[in-house]
């Protein structure tokens, strides 16, 4: 197994600021917008973006929620390992809101498919957008594309993109792992 650094902490920081600005451009005061981090790994990115928007761009009271998609997945009983559930934390209605799904890596698109089903339990959003830090090109199983992307990566199927966050893994860094 070998791994190479795809993005360093400095590069990630620049990208996060760009993504925050892009969100700001489209959503302005975020009055009618909610950010939804997809469990388990999307929540770090979502929290970080909400923090940048709040602290550096003065956006107040951002609605931030976490959505667990375990029970909506289509690979229940197909995988080797049992699926692990995480906490859903959405304290607001998404009815008629602009929802932004936030996840660290977009790969086959199946997680986002599940998230599209799962979010319906919380109302009917006006529209849904997708923000992803890493977009793995050419590996989609479903017609799903991000509205905001951090970096596009060409990775083959045997490779894995590993996103580490300072608050969870000790440092901000993204690796491309060959197995």
């Amino acid at each position: 197994m070998s791994q190479k650094v795809l993005l360093s902490s400095k590069e990630i920081n620049i990208i996060l600021h760009r993504l925050a600005c892009q969100l700001l451009e489209n959503h302005l005061d975020f009055k009618n917008t909610v950010l939804i981090g997809i469990q388990p790994r999307g929540i770090f990115l979502a929290s970080r973006l909400a923090k940048i928007l709040g602290e550096e761009y003065g956006v107040k009271d951002i609605n931030l929620g976490f959505l667990d998609i375990t029970f909506y997945r289509d690979d229940f009983r197909r995988g080797e390992k049992p699926l692990e559930a995480n906490k859903t934390k959405i304290d607001f209605l998404v009815e008629d809101k602009k929802v932004v799904f936030i996840d660290d890596v977009l790969y086959t698109g199946r997680s986002i498919r599940a998230a599209l089903t799962a979010i319906q339990s919380f109302g009917r959003p006006m529209e849904i957008e997708l923000l992803t830090l890493i977009d793995r090109r050419f590996s989609r199983h479903l017609p799903i594309q991000p509205n905001y992307r951090g970096r596009q990566v060409d990775a083959i199927n045997g490779e894995k993109v590993k996103v580490m966050w300072e608050e969870n893994d000790g440092e901000d860094v993204i690796y491309l792992v060959k197995t």
Binding site: Y72, S121, F122
Partner: peptide, 20 residues
């Protein structure tokens, strides 16, 4: 632990998941 997750589900306005 699993029941904790489902308890949250059955207290939503839409109380159903498509798992099974």
């Amino acid at each position: 632990e699993t029941a904790d997750h489902f308890k949250e589900v059955i207290n939503r306005s839409i109380k159903k998941v498509p798992s099974l």
